[in-house]
């Protein structure tokens, strides 16, 4: 039996708040989704102008992982190809698909935008995160009706077991219209004993996902 991995950190963006490892890092009620995301970006002093070009799914995934990895020195501790990103959601890129569809509804004003079209694939969020953090490892985007902690556990666990990854970011990144909900967590083989470490298993993922601020 191989040693279990650990969840070294997690980050959650939902209900107008950002939670990192059980702590509320940022809260802003009443803002619409776009202002809320921009608020997070500015609050944490993130300097990455490409953020403004992203669609909402990418913004949500980008911010979640940005805060998950802040000051964790992942790039120093792992080679790029050792870090995997396995994400899941329900609506794929439908939120931005609607946006692209708007540009082609009217034949007399038919101006499809390449900057919109490129985001009509859910895995672009993985690409954006990889570019930002220089990760060149395994990446897969799954779609299921609901968050599936058991499947995500099993899949990521076998990636570790088969030495495909040494470190993995996994979770749920969903946005559609005004709705947004993300939970991402960092899985490693070992961690510092002082950190709030939890064993990587389906129940702990379930527990993290079910948290409310």
């Amino acid at each position: 039996m191989k040693k279990s991995c650990i969840i070294s950190h997690y980050c959650q963006i939902r209900d107008h708040a950002v939670i990192g490892d059980d702590e509320t890092l940022y809260e802003r009620c009443g803002a619409d989704l776009s202002d809320f995301f921009t608020g997070i970006y500015q609050h944490f002093d993130i300097s990455y102008p490409k953020f403004y070009k992203m669609d909402n799914l990418c913004k949500l995934g980008f911010l979640s992982v940005e805060l998950l990895l802040m000051d964790r020195n992942i790039q120093q501790r792992y080679a790029g190809h050792e870090v995997g990103i396995i994400l899941m959601n329900a609506s794929s890129s439908l939120d931005n698909d609607r946006h692209h569809q708007q540009t082609i509804l009217d034949r007399s004003a038919y101006f499809p935008s390449p900057a919109v079209f490129v985001y009509t694939l859910p895995n672009i969020v993985i690409g954006e995160i990889c570019i930002r953090h220089k990760f060149t490892g395994e990446g897969t985007f799954f779609v299921r009706e609901r968050f599936d902690p058991l499947f995500l556990f099993n899949y990521v666990n076998q990636l570790f077991y088969q030495d495909v990854v040494q470190c993995c970011i996994a979770g749920w990144v969903e946005t559609l219209g005004d709705y947004y909900d993300s939970t991402v967590y960092l899985i490693e083989k070992t961690g510092k004993p002082d950190a709030g470490i939890t064993i990587f298993e389906p129940d702990t993922i379930k527990h993290i996902f079910a948290k409310e601020k």
Partner: peptide
């Protein structure tokens, strides 16, 4: 089998075929 990301650009393939 393995997958890999270029970590370079969201639409243009890597000029060095990195990924």
């Amino acid at each position: 089998g393995f997958s890999s990301n270029d970590a370079n650009h969201i639409s243009g393939p890597s000029r060095t075929g990195e990924g």
